[in-house]
């Protein structure tokens, strides 16, 4: 698949004002985001994953190396608007991303700033609200919505820019289980039905299990790469990086230590159940 974002030996460091020392956060990253894929970036706090994500739409530019969106170099200031329009970002806290007092006005904020004609703005707002399944709330006040609903409004605000890639940095960290499910369903709709490229940064392994591909970051480098099955089947390696595996995988791993012979690429409940049954029947 054709890459839509590509990094070449991306390095990023910053100087701490207080101790005058330079800290290297990204230590030479070569990766790509492929058109139409659902990519998940995992890594513990401080591994550099958010810093990497901020390079995808020029919020940060590399200290060394290059980042390209299509054929545009993200350090080229003349391309900033084009890049931001192609790659949209959603952050952890929905309260920090909502600017207007009415849902539809909030979603119209970006297209208005793009100077689009009125009809176009309306059709984009309609499209965005429909995609995140929030049409019924179009005239509501955002602060009265639940966390999951607010975060869907924030996503709609990004969709109204019609980006090709949507990057979500821990969008479910502050949500309850229902809110998390709402956001995951929205992400899957965007990717599977609308064909949008999605990059999801998360700490939740069950969310990562739904992706097409996972990158695992550790200490500013990419440590592992592969499909969820490939990555999570390396239980020891994943745990050594300070991450976790889904409980279904952990259960299979522990049962195998005690004489079971289950495949280690079990990620979801159904696979786990059917494989355990197979094993028990063979007894």
């Amino acid at each position: 698949m054709e890459p839509i974002i590509r990094t070449e030996n991306l390095k990023f460091s910053y100087k701490n004002q207080e101790d005058g020392r330079t800290y290297e956060v990204l230590k030479g990253i070569d990766m790509e985001v492929r058109k139409g894929e659902f990519l998940c970036v995992l890594g513990h706090n401080g591994s550099g994953k958010s810093t990497l994500a901020k390079h995808f739409n020029s919020i940060l530019v590399p200290t060394e190396g290059k980042v390209f969106v299509g054929d545009m170099d993200t350090s080229d200031e003349d391309k900033l608007f084009d890049i931001r329009q192609r790659v949209g970002m959603v952050f952890q806290n929905p309260d920090n991303q909502i600017v207007a007092t009415i849902v539809e006005e909030d979603i119209a904020f970006a297209p208005e700033n793009l100077g689009l004609p009125r009809e176009e703005i309306i059709s984009r707002v309609d499209f965005a609200l429909k995609t995140v399944n929030m049409e019924a709330y179009r005239n509501h006040a955002p602060h009265k919505l639940s966390g999951g609903q607010k975060q869907r409004v924030a996503i709609a605000g990004v969709l109204a820019m019609m980006p090709e890639v949507i990057v979500l940095d821990e969008p479910t960290a502050m949500l309850d289980p229902v809110g998390r499910k709402e956001i995951m369903n929205t992400i899957k709709t965007l990717n599977r039905e609308k064909g949008m490229t999605v990059v999801l940064i998360t700490h939740y392994m069950d969310e990562a299990a739904e992706a097409d591909r996972i990158l695992v970051m550790d200490k500013g480098k990419i440590k592992m790469e592969g499909t969820p099955k490939e990555v999570f089947s390396k239980v020891d390696e994943v745990k050594a990086i300070g991450l976790d595996v889904p409980q279904a995988t952990a259960l299979a791993f522990e049962l195998n230590k005690n004489g079971f012979n289950l495949p280690l690429d079990i990620l979801n409940t159904e696979d786990c159940v059917s494989n355990i049954i197979k094993e028990l029947e063979n007894d």
């Binding site: 309850d176 289980p177 229902v178 889904p246 409980q247 259960l251 409940t269 159940v273 355990i276």
Partner: peptide, 20 residues
């Protein structure tokens, strides 16, 4: 109530449903 159970609870629950 809008809550969930841990994945291992779902797994063992399904096994129970199958008669284990």
């Amino acid at each position: 109530f809008g809550l969930s159970v841990p994945q291992v609870t779902s797994i063992t629950h399904k096994l129970r449903e199958k008669g284990y």
